[in-house]
Each structure stands twice: as structure tokens, then as C-alpha cells.
């Protein structure tokens, strides 16, 4: 592929159109300007959902790429290191302690908890032997399990299991309507902001020694990266639930094609993440039409397959 970004964006256009045209209500999207009912469906349901999918896919892809640069390991994603579980824990805590807290405070709490959880993961893996590449993702999965079990236990004790089920189980977009997805713009903005520091993330990806040698303050850039990853994951988990594998698989594929010069590759990661999630969401909506299969389920199957191929195609180096 000579212009991977061009090809991906070209694929995004028909996918987006298809998404706008797919739904339980049979309306003619192109007649929307003259048909008030069609316009209502479009603006209240179809467009928000399509935007939500695009923002989520793009932001999770970018978050995954940043996380992989921060921990210098290809086999982790925001969904496998406990970030989402920590966000759920934070949100659960504020829901219990201050149910009347304004929404922005809840969002902030979830993001802060996500950041603490991810920082804990980073602190743990720093104590692992540096050569054991595969122990890093395993640590993440176990840590996610431990935090998840705390969340489950608290939720059980407080009869909030219904609430956390929507966060921790497979994500889906069927509930997205205007007014219930807008925080995803924060995720998108955070991912966009990361592009301005792309060089710094790429240098950090070379290792702390090289970064120090080049005069980069590694702590600051580490914190910035953790903040972006946590913000993105917290927003996604609390609006649409966990979306597995996007943040894991997309950065791997793009890194294969374009390498880790993040200033060039981050836009591509965002576009590819959006395209893959959009495609999976469309499959989920069409395969059992008019019923829906959650995109998380489709992604779990498709993503796991892609991941296994990547795992066995690329031998020694991580």
C-alpha cells in the first residue's frame, strides 16, 4: 500500500454512510432534508451512533498506541491492563459516596481512578525482568482481574451489579442517542491532543535511557501518556462499555506497516481504529437484523483471531 492513510479514509466513507443508513426504523436518509421524521431519526439516533463509533474506535486505537510506547511492549492494550476496571471502580465509588455529584465530577473521578490503576500497572511491570516480554500482558490481565473482582464484590454488596455490568461486560452502541454519547468527544479530543506530543512518545518508546540522553523529561511525558490513555478508556467504558482488542490489534497492524514514528502513524492508527470498529459494529447490526449483536462480542471474536495471527507471525522481537 502506497498511501495507507488514503486507503483507510476511503474505506471509512462508505462504512460511515452504511452506518447512517442502517437501523430498525426504515427511513430514507437522503430524503432527510424534506422529511421531518427521517431528519429526527438521523439527528437523534443514526448520527450520534455513527459519531460515537468513529470517536471510540479512533480514540482507543490512539490510546493503545501510546500505552504500547509507554510500557515498550506490543502485547498490551487499554482493555487488558486494568484501566477500564479502575475507571469502573472510581465511578462506583463516587456513585456510592456522593450520588448527587455533578456529571463532570463523576467523569473526573473515573478518569483519575483509571489513571491510578494504569500507573499501578506500570509500577508493577517495572519490577519484572526486562527480557520477559510476555509477562507484561499477563500481569495486566491478572491485575485487571483483581481490580474487576473488587468492583464486582462492592457492586454485589450494594445491589449495583446491574450498573457495573454495563461497564465491564461487552461494549455496545445500541443505546447511543443524542445526549448520551457526548463525553466521547472528550476521548476524541484527548487522543487528538496526543498527536502534538507524538515525537516525545516516540522517543520514550526507544527507552528511558535514550530519552534521557536526548534531554527528554521522561516522568512528565509518562504522566501525559497515562492521562490520555486513562481519559480515553474511562470515557469509553462509562458510555458504551469495554470494547476489547481495538487498542491492542490496531496499533500492532499499523506499526507493522508504518513503523513507530508516531507523528506519521497516529493519524493512521485513529483512522484504522475507527474503520475496524465501524465495520464490526455494522456486522453486529446486520447479521441478525433487526436484532443487534454487541460490537464487543464481534470484536472479541475478530480481534482475538487477528491477535493470534500477529502473535505467531512475528517471532522473536516484541
Amino acid at each position: 500500500m502506497k498511501h495507507p492513510l488514503g486507503v483507510t479514509v476511503a474505506a471509512l466513507v462508505p462504512l460511515t454512510l452504511a452506518s447512517l443508513m442502517t437501523g430498525a426504523a426504515s427511513i430514507d436518509v437522503f430524503a432527510a432534508p424534506s422529511d421531518p421524521w427521517a431528519m429526527l431519526v438521523l439527528m437523534e439516533s443514526r448520527l450520534p451512533r455513527t459519531l460515537a463509533v468513529l470517536l471510540t474506535g479512533a480514540a482507543l486505537g490512539v490510546a493503545g498506541m501510546l500505552l504500547q510506547a509507554l510500557v515498550r511492549n506490543r502485547f498490551v492494550g487499554p482493555d487488558t491492563v486494568g484501566t477500564g476496571e479502575s475507571a469502573a471502580l472510581g465511578l462506583l465509588a463516587i456513585t456510592l459516596l456522593a450520588p448527587a455529584a455533578p456529571i463532570w465530577l463523576k467523569i473526573l473521578t473515573a478518569a483519575a481512578a483509571a489513571m491510578a490503576g494504569t500507573a499501578l500497572f506500570v509500577a508493577v511491570i517495572r519490577r519484572l525482568p526486562p527480557r520477559e516480554v510476555m509477562l507484561v500482558p499477563i500481569t495486566g490481565i491478572v491485575l485487571a482481574g483483581v481490580i474487576g473482582s473488587i468492583v464486582t464484590y462492592i457492586a454485589w454488596q450494594t445491589d449495583l451489579i446491574q450498573l457495573i455490568t454495563t461497564w465491564l461486560m461487552t461494549g455496545e452502541f445500541s443505546g447511543v442517542i443524542a445526549g448520551r454519547y457526548e463525553v466521547l468527544w472528550i476521548a476524541g479530543a484527548a487522543a487528538g491532543l496526543a498527536w502534538f506530543a507524538a515525537d516525545r512518545f516516540a522517543i520514550l518508546g526507544l527507552g528511558e535511557e535514550v530519552a534521557t540522553g536526548l534531554g527528554l523529561g521522561t516522568k512528565g511525558i509518562m504522566r501525559l501518556g497515562l492521562a490520555v490513555v486513562s481519559l480515553v478508556t474511562a470515557m469509553v467504558v462509562t458510555t458504551v462499555g469495554m470494547i476489547p482488542f481495538i487498542g491492542l490489534v490496531v496499533p500492532n497492524i499499523i506499526s507493522r506497516i508504518m513503523g513507530d514514528n508516531l507523528r506519521q502513524s497516529l493519524p493512521m492508527v485513529a483512522a484504522a481504529g475507527a474503520a475496524l470498529l465501524m465495520a464490526c459494529d455494522l456486522i453486529g447490526r446486520l447479521v441478525r437484523y433487526p436484532f443487534e449483536i454487541p460490537v464487543g462480542t464481534i470484536m472479541g471474536f475478530v480481534g482475538a483471531g487477528i491477535f493470534l495471527i500477529l502473535l505467531y507471525r512475528k517471532p522473536a522481537h516484541g
Binding site: 510506547a69 515498550r72 526486562p130 516480554v133 515525537d199 516516540a202 522517543i203 518508546g205 526507544l206 527507552g207 535514550v210 536526548l214 506499526s255 507493522r256 513503523g259 513507530d260 514514528n261 522481537h317 516484541g318
Partner: peptide
């Protein structure tokens, strides 16, 4: 450490 996936020209440019 394990190599990052940068082109040699990108690495040297850093």
C-alpha cells in the same frame, strides 16, 4: 532493550 519499530533514518533524526 527490545528495539522499537522505527526506520533507521527516523532514529538518527531524533
Amino acid at each position: 532493550q527490545i528495539a522499537s519499530r522505527l526506520r533507521l533514518s527516523d532514529l538518527v533524526a531524533f
